[in-house]
Nucleic acid binder design. Structure first.
Lengths: 356, 356
DNA sequence: GAAGAAAATGTGACCGGTCACCTACCGGCC
DNA sequence: GGCCGGTAGGTGACCGGTCACATTTTCTTC
């Protein structure tokens, strides 16, 4: 732990000495706060320029007890949805003068989750965003400790036990939207491929699907295949399973675009055309969705909006110490929208429906 | 700037008081450094547990003059390559006990570049990674100032002016690899769709392509179409342009998978089959590449390895004060590999080749 | 022209750790 | 017995800012 050899950076006091003022005046200048005459300001600025002074953010944080940093503990940001969320959060954070420390936890090394939380606790972040659909038990007590002292927002995570703010996609609405679109296209026998059901979002989308079918008031059948992952392979094998099951259906709602991609691959491999023989609707609107063949009809969820909202929730609480003293936890749902492309059509002619 | 209302966290001195030792002893315990008897350690640990003490990383950094933070200023991490790079860097950083502050600069708001650099300067990062293929002029002086005092690595960026370390994909080798694969499949008239030529990587891949053709010693023609972006739309219109040009060719090397996707879309829209009528090879190996139809033959570049290498370069320099005093800048190239799938075949029969 | 408010600036403590240095005890060896 | 080295622990300064408060100067106002 030897000191770095590089020449020490100038401090506020050295600037002060050079400008012939007190260190406090320099502080006033760099923070543009308090009374400073134009002449003095000019002198100080000149000294700053000459010494190439850059204020030390660390000292600042220590003294002001504000790190101006928000922590994000998220699922692996190789997943496009989470990457978008992080990007949205970052943009909004910067707009508000905050920095983000992003901890991206891979499925492979779940210990990182707790490690990141502890880390952020040490770094004295001003606020925390948790985007972990499957939060670990063991992390819960650390999270609780953090949430006790700083504002915390949960994204797409099930942490009712802790009284956190939360932001989420309206997954139930999304499930309903997708399903309704299929119904409106005339489908009465529908299959759905869900994501892992221990993800709140998968569960909620499935509920939305059920609701839509019920609300439609039509006699409609639902075949459900659940997966352990959201990826293409899972979609493919789920589709294969549905075909094997003998259930009859004319449209498939896959709860992610990747699942849809896998489903379509499986269908096409069996010589079925989409949407000619089978309609497919996805969820996420990943960038390539519009370039798939057929171009994928899907549900777009503005994940960057989710991230931005979470940041806003935090900064609001940080700015105003919750007016009138009450500290209510807030829940926000972000709306989704339907993106109609080419993968959904009317049901195949009766004669062409296949079985087994 | 009022103090946060939440109860102050306990400090090292309070722990010391409770354990009946000096603050320095507590410091020794939490850093597992120096001599502490087992009995004392136990007392201290108990006090820590009781007070829920968490060391203040900020105070630590200020005092030790080490932030244990590396900064990354990168292109927008919605771009999968950069996201992977960031993920690789992060993993390696954590492994070495460093944290990452990632600044993702969108094309839309290029001012962020400089803003991030300044920010990191303030935060006293221990090392910097710059992954900006198109670095702005105006950022250069800030970057120079930073690089003067802390280790800095450039990724895929052209900053010869500054004497930085660098890590990069072997783009020239990648271009050669892709092109050679086409040649080995019998193609003699090849087209390439490059990315924006002000990206060093696009330039280098093109050079690799030219080299491969030259080295093959065969009479081979190259048609070049350059784009302003790496996306699907650009690929599509570049392909259209190539078709219009009247040049004849039997294979296309697109410098990104998205460009390839667009090219294939355009070909298929014109009723041509890939690889039946035209072979296409991409670059990047994005996740969906293997699920495209046809599954895309492409060049895989281990971007996470690039990120990890950059971090290693930094931490090495931070650990050892460059043995024997000399501070040589280091350049590392990361190898790429060919991923053979279904989008490349032999050249179409002469009779089927089309023109104009 | 006196008094008070506003403007401009200075002083020293403090944030919560680490660093450098000091003291004290113990055992071994000459 | 004296000296040495290893072990265990303490003391106060310091990192580079901000905070609270004191002080001086300038401007209003009556």
């Amino acid at each position: 732990m030897k000191r770095p050899a590089s020449p020490r950076r100038p401090t506020i006091r050295e600037v002060a000495a050079r400008a012939g003022v007190s260190h406090q005046t320099v502080s006033r200048v760099i923070n543009a706060d308090g009374y400073v005459s134009d002449a003095t300001r000019a002198k100080v600025l000149q000294a700053i320029g000459h010494l190439k002074f850059v204020p030390n953010g660390i000292a600042r944080s220590l003294s002001s007890r504000r790190s101006h940093t928000l922590g994000v503990v998220s699922n692996d940001i190789s997943d496009h949805s989470f990457a978008e969320m992080a990007a949205g959060a970052e943009l909004e954070a910067r707009r508000q003068g905050f920095y983000l420390i992003i901890g991206s936890v891979e499925d492979g090394s779940p210990d990182d989750e707790e490690a990141y939380l502890r880390l952020m606790q040490q770094r004295r972040i001003d606020g925390l965003i948790v985007a972990r659909p499957r939060l670990r038990r063991s992390s819960l007590r650390v999270l609780a400790a953090i949430a006790e002292s700083i504002p915390t927002v949960a994204i797409a995570s099930r942490v009712e036990a802790l009284k956190l703010h939360s932001v989420d996609i309206d997954n139930r609405g999304g499930g309903r939207l997708a399903t309704t679109h299929l119904i409106e296209n005339g489908h009465r026998a529908i299959a759905t491929i869900t994501g892992p059901l221990d993800w709140p979002s998968a569960q909620a989308r499935l509920e939305g699907t059920r609701e839509a079918l019920r609300d439609a008031g039509v006699e409609a059948k639902l075949a459900v295949a659940s997966t352990g992952e959201w990826g293409v392979e899972a979609g493919r094998s789920a589709m294969a399973e549905l075909m094997r099951s003998g259930d009859r259906f004319t449209a498939v709602f896959a709860q992610s675009d990747l699942l849809a991609l896998g489903a379509i691959a499986e269908l096409q491999a069996r010589g079925l055309s989409v949407p000619g023989d089978m309609s497919v609707i996805g969820y996420d609107d990943i960038p390539v969705a519009r370039y798939m063949s057929p171009a994928l009809t899907t549900v777009r969820q503005p994940m960057n909006e989710v991230g931005a909202t979470a940041v806003r929730l935090l900064t609001q609480e940080l700015a105003g110490p919750s007016p009138s003293g009450r500290k209510r936890r807030r829940h926000q749902l972000v709306d989704v929208s339907l993106v109609v492309r080419q993968s959904v059509a009317g049901p195949a002619q009766a004669g062409r429906s296949r079985r087994g």
